[in-house]
Design a protein around this nucleic acid. Structure first.
Length: 518
RNA sequence: GGCCCGUUCAUCUAUCGGUUAGGAUUCAAGAUUUUCAUUCUUGGCAGACGGGUUCGACUCCCGUACGGGCUACCA
């Protein structure tokens, strides 16, 4: 059997990383077996549609390197179209809803939202275990539900002819056991008495998730439904719908993924948590017309997409070895649904940062330079690619994200903006200005192509002058970089070369003189 | 409330009845770096609880507790 999976998000806003992980696991299964991975857009709720969300989903999958083999934004396949609003226009869902009506497995319901509300209130007052539209309530005369099961055929027909809005509900049979085998959780059982008569077709004619999802999975010959655990409670309904259509023998296998939880342990990760916890929960940045609704993503923070994918893959899954760093290809080769965890996994930003660092360190200076190039242009720096690579080599162990390089290492490309006054003055007043002049003279004689020899020569000079290392070296560092932190002094000096190094020393020393005279 | 799912260090996890319960992140200490970071070494930290089954349970079963999800004409 060929593996055919799909990722089926709703374009209701930016897709958060939980969605990315679901897409990733789908991608991995398809890739492992040479199967097909489809992106299907489930846009049947017009009220929640968000402009740009669909493009965001497409861009996010591309950035993560987990592009579907076909689907919206990724090319046609044999079962196009892949957007449910387009399929709706072809009459797909109406056709199947009618089929269920003809079989007597679904019915019309005219109840208004107010009537449904009244029903729930009545049921609650009765102390009923649940307040749903179900086999237990749909026929009760005292509840007065307006459905075609209670109404006469003539009345039903005349209401429809009169244009009264209606929905189509699934007619669930009483007291049956529905069992499904979930690849991750094993057997999950429901009693139909607990299941409500789900709306299949809404008053606006659009299908709900329950109908559209199943019809499309069937038509697209999906072999595995890999989705979040939030769908497990309605999986019983889904089996019943497959059964109603007579498709149970070709029903896909289910795998309900554990949820990604908030870092503080209260519920599943939600879209608002990024702002709340101060780290991204989205793959990409989102630029809203309303700036207060805009936010950063892993990409804009400067994460390597490979690190994001690696991190996400380890949330709820692992191959059973102690290896932690995996390429996408390795992940696909090792992946199996059976090894996915049952329990939810807490989002751990520290671990995400650690993954990023691992990838950063493993990236060559040349590749980093290429990634840094556009950022350097943004800042107005004119730097040769090889200098950028040299810079990347000096900075990459001192930085967490791509964006940190030019932020923390700005002084490589422009003058120092601020010198660490406290650390300078502690030493500056202890050493005479003549010595610093001698230092400059001495440094004119150094070989700037060889940091090691510069270091030896400078230390030797310090020894012969009777000064302490701690009186000179920090001054040198701050003169070049402005701060106590940063790469080795003579690596920086070698990067700058003789002229620039001496220029910086003179500029800094002049500044330090001014402080002393104050 | 009802239904469904779950429960190994603070966090991500290994263990598929017999282990000194392993690794990683975080944290702490030390070494290196006369900065910072990296790296390395060391340390601390776990089987929710109560019953069974068994020669033997983290592992299987039941119960309790706790956590999570769902309970819309949203997905």
């Amino acid at each position: 059997m060929s593996i055919r999976v799909r990722f089926a998000p709703s374009p209701t806003g930016a897709l958060h990383i939980g969605g990315i992980r679901t897409a990733l696991f789908n991608y991995l299964l398809a890739k492992k077996h040479g199967g097909t991975f489809i992106l299907r857009i489930e846009d049947t709720d017009q009220t929640r549609y968000v402009e740009g969300a669909e493009q965001y989903i497409i861009d996010a999958l591309k950035w993560c390197g987990i592009a579907p083999t076909e689907g919206v934004g990724f090319g046609d396949g044999p079962y196009t179209p892949y957007r449910q609003s387009d399929r709706f226009k072809q009459g797909v869902y109406q056709k199947y809803a009618n089929e269920l009506m003809d079989k007597g497995l679904a019915y019309f319901a005219f109840d208004t939202p107010q009537q449904l509300e009244a029903m729930r209130n009545t049921l609650q007052a009765e102390g009923a275990k649940n307040q749903s539209y179900s086999h237990a309530t749909r026929m009760r005369d005292d509840l007065g539900l307006q459905n075609s099961l209670r109404l006469s055929a003539e009345e039903t027909q005349s209401r429809i002819s009169a244009g009264e809005p209606y929905v189509i509900r699934l007619k669930i049979l009483e007291n049956q056991t529905v069992t499904l085998t979930d690849i991750i959780r094993g057997e999950v059982t429901f009693n139909t008495n607990e299941l409500d008569d789900k709306v299949l077709l809404k008053a606006d004619g659009m299908p709900t998730y329950h109908l559209a999802n199943i019809v499309d999975d069937y038509e697209m010959k999906i072999s595995h439904v890999i989705r979040g655990e939030e769908w497990l409670p309605s999986a019983g309904h889904h089996v019943l719908i497959y059964r109603a259509f007579g498709w149970e023998s070709v029903m896909p296998q289910f795998a309900h993924l554990p949820l990604i939880l908030k870092p503080d342990g209260k519920g599943k990760l939600s879209k608002r948590d990024g702002a709340k916890f101060g780290f991204p929960v989205f793959p990409l940045e989102w630029n809203d017309a309303d700036p207060t609704k805009s936010f950063d993503g892993f990409r804009s923070i400067g994460f390597d997409p490979r690190a994001v994918v690696n991190f996400l893959a380890m949330l709820g899954w692992n191959p059973g070895t102690e290896q932690e760093i995996f390429s996408l290809d390795e992940l696909a080769a090792l992946f199996s649904l059976e090894k996915i965890h049952k329990a939810g996994a807490r989002f751990d930003y520290d671990k995400a940062k650690w993954f990023n660092q691992q990838y950063l360190h493993a990236t060559s200076n040349e590749d980093l330079a290429a990634q840094l190039h556009p950022l350097s242009i943004e800042r107005g720096y004119v730097v040769a690619q090889e200098k950028l690579a040299q810079f990347a080599g000096l900075m990459k162990e001192r930085v967490q994200f791509l964006n940190d390089f030019l932020e923390k290492g700005y002084y490589f490309f422009e003058d120092v903006k601020e010198y660490d006054e406290v650390n300078v003055m502690k030493r500056w007043i202890r050493v005479s200005r003549e010595k610093f002049n001698e230092l400059i003279s001495m440094m004119q004689t150094l070989d700037y192509s060889d940091p090691l020899s510069m270091e030896h020569a400078t230390k030797e000079w310090i020894n012969t002058t009777g000064l302490k290392m701690g009186e000179i070296l920090p001054i040198l560092r701050i003169a070049l970089a402005g701060t106590m932190q940063g790469p080795a002094i003579f690596d920086m000096a070698a990067y700058f070369g003789k002229d620039e190094t001496l220029r910086r020393l003179k500029r800094a020393f002049a500044e330090f003189d001014k402080w002393q005279s104050l």
